[in-house]
């Protein structure tokens, strides 16, 4: 009573172990959003709250000290806009 493995089962790792770290960056999740955050850098004070509250860690600080969102991973949740103390992040409809 042997079980002949399908071709796909032969290829999968044992116990579903993923042996390459950081593989989640390969999955771009930015496509989920309807609205995208747009920061008005004229008013931005570089406080970093958007960076701190982003559940997807999509914000990165650039060399001038401003925080920019990586739209490949932003899911458009709007927490950054809601929490911004200067209210300088607006959620705008993303054109698709």
């Amino acid at each position: 009573m042997n079980h002949e493995l399908s071709e796909k089962a032969k290829k999968l790792s044992q116990g579903a172990v993923i042996d390459k770290p950081g593989s989640t960056v390969e999955t771009k999740t930015g496509g989920w959003k309807t609205f995208k955050p747009v920061t008005n850098y004229e008013e931005c004070i570089k406080c970093g709250k958007c960076w701190a509250v982003c559940p997807e860690a999509a914000y990165k600080q650039n060399k001038d000290g401003f925080f920019e969102v990586d739209l490949d991973y932003c899911k458009g949740c709007g927490i950054c806009a809601k929490e911004c103390p200067k209210k300088c992040i607006k959620m705008e409809l993303e054109e698709k």
């Binding site: 089962a9 116990g15 579903a16």
Partner: peptide, 19 residues
Amino acid sequence: PKTFGPIGFPSDYMEFKEQ
């Protein structure tokens, strides 16, 4: 580093059970 116990989507779960 490796990931243990990730999600198995319907596309793969049954193949893991085959194993």
